[in-house]
C-alpha cells in the first residue's frame, strides 16, 4: 500500500503465542510514518495484542518488528515506550487524583508536571480544569478514557497507539477526541495507530486501515477499502454480520 511512505513501524512475519495458543499468525505490513492507520476487526482478532507488540510490552514468538528501521530488540525498552506511547484499552488508573495520573509519566522520570500544563492537557481532551484534584475512582468511564488519552500525550510520543479510546464516549466527546488526535497528527507529524470498533470512525479518521480476523491481517489499504471490501469475510464484517 504505502511504497511512497517511510514505515514508522514494520512487521515482518510476526507470530505471537500464549502457551500453545496462536494469537497472531504471520503478520507482515507497515504503518506509514506521519499517517493515521486504523485497525479494525471483530473482538478477539488480536488487535490489542498487535498494539502491545509495537511498544515492546510483549515480544513476538517469531518474526521481526522494526521501529523507524531499527529492530525493536535493539531499543532500550524505556526509551522505546516513551517514543511509542500507548493508551491501553481498559484505561487503567493508578489510585489517587487526576493530577497524580497525569503526572505519572514524568514522575517515573523523576520530574513533575506543572499545574498549567496539566490544565492545558485536560482542556485538550475536553475535560474541565476543576477535575484536576478529583479522585479517579469518582470519574465516569468516559472521563477516565479522556484522562488516559491526556496521560499518554505527556511523554509527547512520536508514535501514538490508541486502543479503542472512544468506546465509552458520547457522540460529542468522540468528535472532540477525533479532532484532537487529527490535530496532533497534523501539527507534530505523529504517526497514529488507532484501534476502533467503529467502522464509520475508521473511515473518517484513517488514512489507512488494516482489517484483522482470527489473528491474521486479512485486508489492508486506504481506509476507503471499507466502503467496498474485496475480501468476502471483510465484506461480511463490514455489513455487520460479524462483530
Amino acid at each position: 500500500m504505502s511504497t511512497q511512505y517511510k514505515p514508522a513501524i514494520h512487521f515482518q512475519h510476526v507470530d505471537y503465542r500464549i502457551g500453545d495458543i496462536e494469537i497472531l499468525n504471520d503478520i507482515t505490513g507497515s504503518f506509514p510514518q506521519g499517517r493515521i492507520t486504523t485497525l479494525v476487526g471483530p473482538s478477539g482478532a488480536g488487535k490489542s495484542t498487535l498494539l502491545k507488540l509495537c511498544n515492546g510490552l510483549i515480544s513476538p514468538a517469531n518474526g521481526e518488528i522494526f521501529v523507524k528501521d531499527k529492530a525493536i530488540g535493539e531499543y532500550d525498552p524505556v526509551e522505546l515506550r516513551r517514543m511509542v506511547g500507548m493508551a491501553l484499552q481498559s484505561a487503567p488508573m493508578i489510585s489517587g487524583t487526576v493530577y497524580e495520573n497525569l503526572n505519572l509519566p514524568l514522575e517515573l522520570q523523576g520530574q513533575q508536571l506543572a499545574k498549567e500544563d496539566a490544565l492545558e492537557l485536560l482542556e485538550d481532551v475536553g475535560l474541565k480544569g476543576d477535575l484536576l484534584d478529583r479522585k479517579v475512582k469518582e470519574l465516569s468511564g468516559g472521563q477516565r478514557q479522556k484522562v488516559s488519552i491526556a496521560r499518554t500525550l505527556v511523554n509527547k510520543p512520536e508514535i501514538l497507539l490508541m486502543d479503542e479510546i472512544t468506546s465509552s464516549l458520547d457522540r460529542a466527546s468522540k468528535l472532540e477526541v477525533e479532532e484532537l488526535i487529527s490535530k496532533i497528527n497534523r501539527k507534530y507529524k505523529t504517526t497514529i495507530i488507532w484501534i476502533t470498533h467503529n467502522l464509520q470512525q475508521a473511515l473518517e479518521i484513517g488514512d489507512y486501515t488494516w482489517v484483522m480476523m482470527d489473528g491474521q491481517v486479512v485486508e489492508t489499504g486506504e481506509s476507503s477499502l471499507l466502503e467496498d471490501p474485496q475480501n468476502q469475510r471483510v465484506n461480511e464484517f463490514v455489513k455487520g454480520v460479524v462483530s
Binding site: 524505556v78 500507548m86 493508578i94 505519572l104 522520570q109
Partner: peptide, 20 residues
C-alpha cells in the same frame, strides 16, 4: 496487572511498575 502494564507502557521500570 493492568496498573503494572500501564506503568511499563509509560516507560517505567519493573521496580516502579511493581512498587505499590
Amino acid at each position: 496487572q493492568d496498573q503494572t502494564e500501564l506503568i511499563l507502557s509509560l516507560g517505567g521500570t519493573p521496580k516502579q511498575a511493581i512498587h505499590r
